[in-house]
Design a protein around this nucleic acid. Structure first.
Lengths: 240, 240
DNA sequence: ATTTGTGAAGGGTTTCACAGCG
DNA sequence: CGCTGTGAAACCCTTCACAAAT
């Protein structure tokens, strides 16, 4: 699914795109382990809690360097640091969120942002009635101030949580004032220059993919009327 | 990201997982085209608006059958129907949403659900103060009634929009009462039987992936001090 | 004895380029 | 002539299995 230009990506960074997508999962599991006092973990154990195979985990980590000890495993804290560094989380990024509806509220209140070096620099909305509202300690500004806010806070990441109808226009403005990464929640395909990264989160698409698999399960069940609850069915766990 | 068991999947359905993930995008573009009165579209044009290459688009569609006309293109309405059928959207699915915080509200109000054959059968929350609240014409029920509601509405898809701490327990209960597909918004890796499909949407992970690419851009820029705004940079558009 | 790190094999996916059809 | 549909090549990713290290 994922990507475009994974080859070009790897040429520079050495880390395959598929690996990059899993590192944050490892990081989360490792952080939890560290908090529970665990100091060392094997690839087998870490892989199990992260929901992947141990060979895949080791290959992923091998792209960062040789940070394990044979016969022992990985030092939890050290791995946390190395993964953070590889992902660029030792730097801080300012994020601007455009659109403060239910979804924007959810994003503004999401604790996971701050804990990983992401600072919500500004909340912006087109509706004058929302301007001035306080969300999680942040003021809502008017869309007119978008350019000023982006430059003032040197925001490099923009989050689009607007209706689909305004998403492209907001995106264009973000890109025009220097944003180079966009996380898009609007159900629309954004057009951006090649120098800008876009990732999209699309609820409707996720549901449709699930529907596809549901359909297959149902078809399989009726093919074999004898087994009301088939005990060997393929299960699929998919990363977003 | 993507998948597990794509091989097993394809054995039954004939459609590769990577293709399944893109079909909903094509469907959305085609629906918009149909509404704007377009009756025919070429792979080139459709691919451009969907943000993919035309060869990829044609190969994707070829997995559904030969529904184009050489020298002409694809009939928009017919393609809409064929993709809908392939995805299983001609059936209707009942969805139960657990957790009615900001995110749950956003999901309950999302129009894209109903328009694709997904019916929100019930909203559920653990907080008694939310019970009885009316969201988008739907009552919020208490978590205690989860099993009853799932069975009553024959829901096969569950959406988890709870805090991470309760997500696994909610998931277990959903699976126990017959839900076979789960869309998880909680930042945690869910453990499920092989017969259950899980897809996850994780805001923090998306941001971390963007951070990785931001870091690379910054590194590239300092490597070549002469070019303040490099004009040939890799741009990456990634499907979620 | 145990667990990492990794070549090599095996699939899956994308891209190319063109044959085939309208 | 134009555009689809598709073998074949290229590429990426995963899995296997084991040598190397502690």
């Amino acid at each position: 699914m994922p990507a475009t230009n994974a080859a070009a990506s790897r040429r520079r960074s050495g880390i395959p795109e598929a690996t990059v997508a899993r590192l944050p999962v490892y990081l989360r599991v490792l952080t939890a382990l560290a908090e529970s006092g665990t100091t060392t973990v094997s690839s087998e154990a870490l892989a199990a809690t992260a929901g992947v195979g141990s060979a895949k985990l080791r290959k992923d980590l091998s792209h960062l360097g040789s940070y394990g000890t044979r016969g022992v495993g990985y030092d939890v804290e050290y791995l946390v640091y190395q993964i953070s560094r590889a992902l660029g989380l030792t730097q801080h990024y300012s994020v601007v969120i455009v659109g403060v509806g239910n979804l924007g509220h959810a994003l503004a209140n999401y604790a996971g942002f701050a804990t990983r070096g992401f600072r919500i620099a500004a909340l912006v909305d087109a509706d004058p009635r929302r301007v001035g509202e306080d969300i999680n300690g942040l003021d809502v500004h008017h869309l007119d101030d978008l350019e000023r806010l982006v430059k003032e806070h040197e925001a490099s990441i923009g989050v689009i949580a607007t209706p689909a109808t305004s998403a492209q226009e907001v995106c264009d403005r973000l890109v025009a004032c220097g944003v180079t990464s966009v996380l898009n929640f609007a159900p629309i395909v954004l057009a951006v220059p090649d120098s800008v990264d876009v990732r999209k989160v699309d609820l409707s698409i996720e549901l449709q993919i699930l529907a596809f698999h549901e359909q297959r399960k149902a078809a399989g069940a009726t093919e074999r009327p004898g087994s009301a609850v088939p005990d060997v069915v393929r299960g699929t766990v998919v990363a977003s």
